[in-house]
Amino acid sequence: MSSVAILIETIDGVVPKSAGELATFAKRMGEVTAVMVGGDCSSQLTNYSIDSLVQVDGVDVSKFGVPAYVDAIAAVIAAKNCDVLLVTSGARGKEIAGRVAVRTNSGVITDAIDIDSEKIATQSIFGGSTTVHSQVTTPLAIFTMRSNSVEIVEGACATSVEKLSATPSTATLKAEVLALEPLVKGGRPELTEAAIVVSGGRGTNGDFSAVEAFADSLGAAVGASRAATDAGWYPHSHQVGQTGKTVSPSLYVACGISGAIQHRAGMQTSKMIVAINKDPEAPIFELADYGVVGDLFAVLPSATAAISARK
């Protein structure tokens, strides 16, 4: 049986859903230790299968970021003798995992969509065209898990919180955050966590109201193509694709998006893909389970009305 550390990253003190997904994957392999850095957020973890809770202080992650997380995790791994580390596959999570791998001379597999009890990870690469199974061969195995890849299995969470003090390494103190302006969060679900994502592209011509209304009728997150974020129509934090976020919701609706390879890279593993585009030759239709050839400004409002009618 393994001893699995999972990193609980918070945004503005809030634990994302992906923490429950990490606990779900971790429980398959053995004992689960949740690592909290900064504050104690255990009150948000009560539904997850976690055998021990460790809160690390002594490092300032808000000021020193990624390397400070690495200092904290390295301390927990040493104290708890962990042989697996799971981190959520965001930009920050991947860097943390990569640096822990270097520091501990361990193997790391990124962006896994599944992992079994034998620590064999599944990845979906080349824009979803190839499925790969791989494993780490070092005593500590590190994985970053793509969010939204597993149904959370709830369980019992430890009730006591163990405290551990870590010391920042000298390199950690070399780059510091001078200022942080938190992202203004709307009322919609987080892009990488949402079960449904509705995205708009150049075809919206800057008017996202129809996309947003349809998204809201479904309780969906709103995404955008790079053409839309470059034009300033939607914030970059909503960009889906190679240089934006990778999403794999159960439903992805692409509205006025042509389906460029860089966009596909971020959404191709969605379970169901719907495209609305007025060009019948648009490449997005090649991967759509359901395509509507039409004007998004006509199709979306009627779809939104149909959803409301069903409620």
Binding site: S124, T137, V292, G294, D295, V299
Partner: peptide, 21 residues
Amino acid sequence: WSNVKDATPRPARAAGLKVED
């Protein structure tokens, strides 16, 4: 530090239904 056990090309996503509005 790690190795690939197997790699399988997934059948290309078959295009599904396409309907004209």
